[in-house]
């Protein structure tokens, strides 16, 4: 009677592709050639990436002088010699807008992740699906949307708030997805223990689950920030560019590193292009720092578990 587990064997059968194809006899030279081709492919892929980083570092460092990071472009034009003016206003503007964007996107992203993982509601699948769809929204479309809704509709001016709203649209899917991954690894026993003590779901989520993955959530936020720190297109349409230090969120446009780079490229003179490379270097260093930070924090969670 028990011979029926042949069924299992048959179920496995179609998953073995090699039964259908024949192997060629192992030939050492062809194998070596393919391994060689793999290495060549690897080198070809690495080449542009190395070139990008190297070029940005080499050309970008030309723009640096002692006050480059702390001055703005209020009294200088892009064409001026490289020992005057700087990128300070763009750094401050980027930091302000990215921080604001994080303040909007991170709580919403975590809430969305909590809904998918903790509440597992009726729409959990749909919410995941739409989050995925949102991660594919082209950045310029996010910019156009905020332009048509906020800049035309409400403020009638380019300003930092509009810029950070556009960035938060692009940040949200990254934060949600990372937070979801993080929440998924919370052991069920923790939740069960909390429920067994009579805690409500609210209590369990807020004082057991979320604190347990605090550093993972920070990682999610930092990854989201790194994702949008270099976005150019939406800022061209919402916060534009401004030559001086500014902390005004509503009335004035605000500079940012990407629009600083883009604007200087548009000017086109040698000094302006050097400034663009300098801005690129600052931007890349900022993003590398953020990514490293995210990995360090994320790594700590993993080890402590």
């Amino acid at each position: 009677m028990d011979y029926f587990h042949f069924d299992d064997a048959q179920a496995v059968e179609p998953q073995r592709p090699w039964t259908r194809r024949r192997f060629s006899k192992p030939k050492r030279w062809s194998e070596a050639a393919i391994t060689c081709a793999m290495w060549v492919g690897f080198a070809v892929v690495m080449l542009p990436w190395i070139s990008i980083i190297a070029t940005v570092v080499v050309r970008g460092s030309k723009a640096f002088y002692i006050d480059y990071l702390t001055t703005d472009m209020l009294v200088n034009s892009s064409d001026d010699p490289l020992n005057a003016g700087g990128v300070g206003h763009a750094i401050v503007g980027s930091l302000i807008m990215v921080t604001l964007a994080a303040l909007i996107a991170v709580p919403l992203g975590i809430i969305t992740a909590v809904y998918i993982v903790e509440i597992k509601g009726r729409f959990a699948k749909a919410v995941r699906f739409f989050t995925q769809a949102m991660s594919g929204v082209p950045s310029i479309v996010a910019g156009l949307f905020i332009y048509s809704m906020v800049v035309i509709g409400i403020t009638h001016k380019y300003n930092a708030i509009a810029g950070s709203m556009a960035l938060s649209i692009l940040m949200l899917p990254t934060v949600t997805r990372t937070a979801e991954e993080v929440l998924k690894v919370v052991p069920r026993e923790l939740r069960d223990a909390s429920y067994a003590l009579g805690a409500s779901q609210f209590r369990t989520t807020v004082s057991v689950v979320l604190p347990n993955v605090r550093s993972g959530l920070v990682t999610a936020a930092v990854l989201g920030v790194a994702r949008v720190a270099g976005e150019t297109a939406p800022l061209l349409l919402t916060s534009q560019y401004f030559v001086k230090f500014s902390t005004d969120l509503f009335k004035n446009p605000m500079a940012s590193l990407p629009t600083y780079i883009f604007g200087n490229l548009g000017v086109g003179s040698d000094n302006a292009v050097s400034r663009a490379w300098g801005g690129s270097l600052v931007l890349i260093v900022l993003i590398v720092l953020l990514s490293t930070l995210a990995r360090l924090i994320g790594g700590r969670t993993r080890r402590s578990r």
């Binding site: 809904y115 919410v127 949102m134 609210f202």
Partner: peptide
């Protein structure tokens, strides 16, 4: 409390759909 919590989170999670 739980009902309110679930309601708020469910509403918040609709943000991606709303934005799209």
């Amino acid at each position: 409390v739980d009902k309110a919590f679930r309601g708020v989170v469910t509403a918040g999670s609709m943000i991606s759909l709303i934005v799209l």
